[in-house]
Design a protein around this nucleic acid. Structure first.
Lengths: 197, 197
DNA sequence: TTTCAATTGGTACTGAGTACCATATGGGAC
DNA sequence: GTCCCATATGGTACTCAGTACCAATTGAAA
């Protein structure tokens, strides 16, 4: 991999500093008591610049996860799909990606806890998680269709995965270590296993 | 039932007129091109009054459905729950309420179509539907727990119902007549039927 | 009729998000 | 190095959502 240009490095650093500043301020004062101007000031950029990196104030809360979703298709290629998947096979594939998403989300436990608290305390942030989940589901649906799944299967399997994710998340509370196991348990309870390969 | 007071009737009428005005304007110009001031003017109320009836601009899009959710617990009482429900039984119960919600949502087909289009075109409205769904799930979870379900079952069953709802909705597009059948089909494909009573 | 609580609409404010512009800066050509 | 261009920056000014406050109106009940 070639060294990124100075521009690219500066850009990445600015982005990181905005996220850092935002999370620090949210932790100190709470989401509502922090303005975009505050974040920009702390990150030592202009208010305008903030909006060049993030579409809105909410987006900075979910920064990072979007990038992972961009690579979702690539992540899935690794799971072979020789024959058109029925619902059990599709679900098994989506299950792997869902658990990978859990692992990714809890990489930084401290930030995970803070994010979960922000989401729990601010309905509009709870709403916003839906956008991420919609994108996950839409991408997965597309991939499943490419692999020959029926429209119904392709639509249902990702939604079932999200159901297990959300239910597991609810059971786990804001404990990062409990997330993946709870989600996996939810999948298990579905009892929709593919026939042995 | 006693006649509602003049105050109550006026209040109801004002609310209805705001909703009417909003939907007409959204249909004419689109969501973004309509300000709250526009809606208030068309409904012949003050801008301040709009915010007394609806917490924000998005809320008026989903007006009516919230009321139904308030009665969710009552609706469920009709479904007897003698013994602690396992996942199949819980799912069967939630299924009924989900289908009732579909019927309710498509009562006014024209408005349903317009709402689905608004949601599809405006991500922030898509996000907002999540709040309604969260409330549905939380209420159902609470009810299931009261009826003796385990925390895991109580958390999972409503989420599975939402998965079937969302998947069915995606398959149905904005055709109101297709919603309930598609959702019902998704439930059927889950194959998680309770043992015969 | 009088009194009280609820409802209303207006004014003024904060903060998110956008458009525009002039400036600065990194990358590449020569 | 230096010249040029595309990119990135920060500031100004604007619209609009949402909130706080207040004075005036109006329904309900005595």
């Amino acid at each position: 991999m070639t060294e990124p240009s100075l521009r690219a490095r500066k850009r990445q650093r600015a982005r990181d500093e905005i996220i850092e500043a935002a999370y620090r301020l949210f932790a100190e004062r709470g989401y509502d008591e922090v303005t975009v101007a505050d974040i920009a000031e702390r990150a030592e950029v202009g208010r305008t610049t903030f909006f060049r990196y993030f579409g809105d104030k909410q987006e900075v809360v979910f920064a990072g996860e979007h990038d992972w979703l961009d690579g979702l298709a690539a992540h899935h290629r690794e799971l072979r799909g020789d024959r058109p998947p029925g619902l059990p096979e599709a679900l098994a594939q989506v299950r792997e990606l869902t658990l990978a998403l859990c692992a990714r989300a809890t990489l930084d436990p401290g930030r995970y806890v803070l994010r979960e608290r922000l989401i729990a305390d601010h309905p509009e942030l709870g709403d916003r998680t839906a956008r991420k989940q919609r994108r996950f589901a839409e991408t997965m649906t597309e991939i499943l269709r490419e692999h020959g799944a029926t429209p119904e299967t392709a639509a249902l399997a990702p939604q079932l995965a999200l159901a297990c994710y959300t239910a597991g998340r609810a059971v786990a509370g804001d404990d990062p270590a409990a997330l993946a196991p709870s989600v996996a348990a939810a999948f298990d309870r579905l009892g929709l296993l593919p026939p042995a390969a």
